[in-house]
Simulated assay, not measured.
Amino acid sequence: MSPKEVTKVDITEDVFKDPNELVNKISSHLDLKYTKVIQTYVMEDGKIKLLISPKNLEEAKTIVGMPDITYIDCKNPLEGSLGANFPWIIKGMKKLIPEGSSQLLSATIGDFPHLPGSASLAALGAVSSGADIVKVGLKGPKNENQGIKLMKNVVKAVKDYSEKAQVVVAGYADRSRMQTSPTFLEIPTIASESGAEIAMLDTHIKDGKGLFDFLNVDELIQFKEKAEDLNVEVALAGKLMKKDLQKIKIIKPDIIGVRSLVCENFDRNMTIKADLIENLKLELYK
């Protein structure tokens, strides 16, 4: 596209849930090589978005309507790192979010073995129960190709139901403690090739060790830069604590996911507390 050419994209009638939707809308009318420029322009002044994971409706009530919490993430810690909750809990959390709210409901469907059919069906269950975003943990796929195969089917199941729904591909920083799962730098490629919007890193084993016990700042910046080159958003999670927030500010992911940090006694199996969420926001945004 010549610098003298002007392309007008009418967005006056559109409602965007997040900057990425605006990027996609504008980019669809331009050559792909301009997409990255648009994304940088839209996102450069954006805050790191917060994703908080309630396990039940009472915890979700604490988070709904709270400023600066973009994602309410329906999760069941008793069933694993990305343990799936029940359809009626997803539906109940969706009902708590007022119509027109900027808050989005995400739902995890589990730390999945390499079973594309089962994963697709679970993803459809989550999105049809009200999830705006479906998160999948790639526990079983042994490599990038298997990850892409599983996620392409998940994305198809989700997008056939709702084109606006988004998909998160989650890998594990502590892969060295697992028998399978793709490497952390394969996750952005899996997301991009499958049509998912977000590449995430979490920890699989919840034993007090966190993201930075397995990957350093330079490695996570490498992860972020690869995802950005592929036009995929980045989410980081895994026992993120107050001491980690300065490193997070250096990396500048699009999203961070927390539970332990905002739970009583910093224990993910305890209850989310509003005052700890406020403390997190003060520390992250100061």
Rank of each mutant, 00 (worst) to 15 (best):
T62W: 02
A84E: 04
I72L: 00
K75Y: 02
N24E: 15
Q39I: 04
K91T: 14
V37L: 14
L82R: 02
H29P: 01
K25Y: 09
N24P: 05
L82I: 03
G46I: 03
K55M: 07
V42E: 05
S27I: 06
E21M: 08
I26W: 05
K33R: 15
I69Q: 05
S27G: 13
L32V: 13
T70P: 01
K55E: 08
Q39M: 13
L51M: 15
K91W: 10
M43P: 06
T35W: 00
E21G: 05
Y34P: 00
M43Q: 14
M66Y: 14
A84G: 00
I69S: 06
M66P: 05
G92V: 09
N85K: 02
T35K: 15
C74T: 09
I63R: 03
T40L: 12
I72E: 02
L22K: 07
N76C: 04
K36A: 10
D31N: 13
G46E: 15
T70K: 10
G65E: 08
D18I: 02
K33H: 14
D68F: 14
G80A: 02
D68A: 11
Y34N: 12
I26D: 08
C74Y: 01
I69E: 04
Y34I: 08
K61W: 07
N85C: 15
T62V: 15
K17T: 10
I38S: 07
I63T: 06
F16L: 06
I52T: 05
L51A: 10
K33G: 02
K91D: 11
A60C: 01
S27M: 10
M43F: 15
K36W: 11
V64R: 06
L78S: 12
K55V: 09
